[in-house]
Nucleic acid binder design. Structure first.
Lengths: 209, 209
DNA sequence: CACTTTCGTGCAGTTACTGTAATTTTATTG
DNA sequence: CAATAAAATTACAGTAACTGCACGAAAGTG
């Protein structure tokens, strides 16, 4: 019938309501603060039942934080594992950054999310928690790379992998804070590189103590 | 009247109920899992009203996690700031470890907490969040030390301080995981030292790429 | 023994969230 | 196009964490 881009009516309607709820939630939270806004208020503003809200977003936090960063694709993992020998930490950070980066096409929405996360401790904590969950899935990957680099398998190697992931998480958290607080200068890539350089400088500090 | 250690009857009763509730909560959670246990159940088991429970612990998580790690004392801060020149990261980790360490005299309770935190993602996240909050108060302290080391004040210096704290948080998280999962070998101090050495080894990896 | 302060409690209410079953809306098929 | 399947939306009832408030009981004090 009507000319429409691609999917069926169903999918389009779904996307529309999702977007409506999202916008309502972010707008209300920006105006009144996250904890002052009730789910009921969001539902009223977006003309949906509470049950529908939870069908879409699962939780009040969910609508603000947006979808969780996806695990890297198999191709990404493969590339990472077999880029043996180089800078494990740097490569991992790049990989994680790629996973976190895009993923939200709408710039305004993204900015709203960031503002809210930054000014709401609860949300900040949840965001960090999500990152932590992502990390857990990454240990195996790093371990594979260490093995591929010819490192002998051992308990120590597992610990090393865990630490690599933890450190990468640090760098990510640091960069995210910089982004969220708006004090980031230069391209994301540059920020990452600077953060990595900073890490190396700091950890060198105790070497010759 | 009756011979008693020190404080008034009031304080002793308070400590007793607190302990009763704590034990009931931990025992129930260990047996049935944290999320299967309701606050009502804990109250019934410890013969207190729900209102009293919340007066004591503020939240369901609160009774499991125990009291939050306190900020270091002024004396600690002073010592840290003026131990200039050495290994900032290492010293900070030691300081944070001291804050987190003791603080719970009862060994059994401590072990119960650890087990529960480890097996309950929600609790783990909250614990990490608490650590993160602690971190925020530490940036100023690190900054003071960097300044005391003769470093010129600048935006970069603030960023460096933040990164030092973030890294220290990483090391702490890593060690906490090791402790919680029971795979820690040796004294806490040794575990910390090994973790720090590991960090240095890893961050050296990209230097000569 | 009065008197004050602190504690514990009951109760009503708010908010996030879940399960279920009915109802409406969209897609498919004969 | 009508019958029907599939999926979305809804109302409703219920659970569980948590808060504010006001009242009575216990403990400290002179």
């Amino acid at each position: 019938m009507n000319s429409h881009s691609d999917d069926g009516l169903r999918a389009r309607k779904r996307a529309a309501t999702r977007s409506t709820i999202e916008r309502a939630a972010l707008s209300l939270a920006l105006e009144h603060g996250y904890d002052k806004v009730t789910v009921d208020a969001i539902c009223e503003a977006s003309m949906v039942s509470q049950r529908t809200f939870f069908n879409y977003f699962g939780s009040k936090e969910g609508v603000i934080l947006g979808s969780a960063p996806p695990m890297p694709t198999d191709a990404d993992v493969d590339a990472f594992v077999h880029a043996a020998g180089g800078d494990v930490l740097g490569d991992l950070v790049l990989l994680m950054a790629a996973a976190v980066a895009d993923h939200e096409p709408d710039r305004d929405l993204l900015r709203s999310r960031r503002v809210l996360i930054q000014r709401t401790p609860d949300l900040m904590n949840r965001e960090i928690a999500r990152m932590t969950e992502l990390q857990n899935g990454l240990v195996a990957m790093v371990l594979a790379r260490l093995r591929a680099s010819g490192r002998a398998d051992s308990t120590d190697l597992v610990e090393e992998a865990r630490m690599v992931v933890t450190l990468a998480g640090s760098v990510m958290r640091y960069c995210m804070e910089q982004f969220f607080s708006g004090s980031a200068a230069g391209s994301p890539r540059e920020v990452l590189e600077r953060a990595l350089a900073l890490v190396r400088r700091i950890t060198d500090g105790g070497e010759h103590g």
